[in-house]
């Protein structure tokens, strides 16, 4: 069974910027090799590594619901940087190692955000949808509603289902989101995220 995680990191969020400039914060979050990469590749690199770590955690926690997020235990590897992309983003592929498990990541680096998705079994042959939206002026407390609306709209379009028949619920114990279609668990694996003005999701439609 394959699980997916996703994470969006706002590059303009003041708290993020302050944290990733704090040496002690970096020491607690990244291993020495990652710290060397941050020195080498510049200001956006810690944001990229973090989004990969968190997206990997969100996939791994579905395999072990009790797992807490300890960023330093998720080590990110990108091949010698060969960015691909057109327009105003750069796309990167990578791997995350956690306790002997290797997970596969894809990331998109833009001027004001980094979005990463991660799968426990890679992306080959999978029908995956993902997306993000920038919501200017949305109060922080309304971000969850915004990301649900984004997912429902995308799923309705992809599956040709009326939006009124799709609901996003969270498992009470694990807080893992579940897409309900016609009041039944769709069994599609779903991951939601938001940060600052951004909301994002990734979903395995089928394997």
């Amino acid at each position: 069974m394959s699980f997916i995680g996703n994470d969006i990191v706002s590059l303009t969020d003041v708290n993020n910027r302050v944290s990733f400039q704090n040496d002690r914060y970096l020491q607690k979050s990244f291993v020495p090799r990652e710290l060397d990469e941050i020195k080498k590749f510049g200001k956006k690199w810690p944001f990229l590594l973090w989004s990969c770590k968190e997206s990997a955690y969100k996939a791994r926690v579905k395999q072990d619901h009790r797992k807490p997020f300890c960023p330093i235990n998720f080590q990110v590897y990108h091949s010698p940087v060969c960015p691909k992309g057109t327009g105003n983003y750069t796309a990167l592929s990578g791997q995350v190692e956690n306790e002997g498990h290797i997970l596969i990541t894809k990331s998109w680096v833009c001027n004001d955000y980094i979005h990463s998705i991660c799968s426990t079994e890679g992306f080959d042959g999978m029908n995956i949808i993902y997306g993000l939206r920038k919501n200017v002026n949305v109060p922080p407390g309304r971000q969850s509603a915004c990301v649900r609306k984004l997912v429902i709209g995308n799923l309705a379009h992809k599956l040709n289902v009326d939006v009124r028949n799709i609901k996003i619920k969270k498992d009470r114990e694990t807080e893992i989101p579940v897409a309900m279609i016609d009041n039944s668990d769709s069994e599609m694996d779903l991951s939601l995220s938001h940060d600052g003005e951004f909301v994002a999701f990734a979903c395995i439609i089928s394997i």
């Binding site: 993020n16 607690k28 968190e54 997020f69 940060d195």
Partner: peptide, 16 residues
């Protein structure tokens, strides 16, 4: 993170 809705990136700040 789940009940207090603290962003996971801020948990490291809390530890510091």
């Amino acid at each position: 993170t789940k009940d207090l809705k603290i962003n996971s990136a801020r948990v490291v700040d809390i530890v510091l």
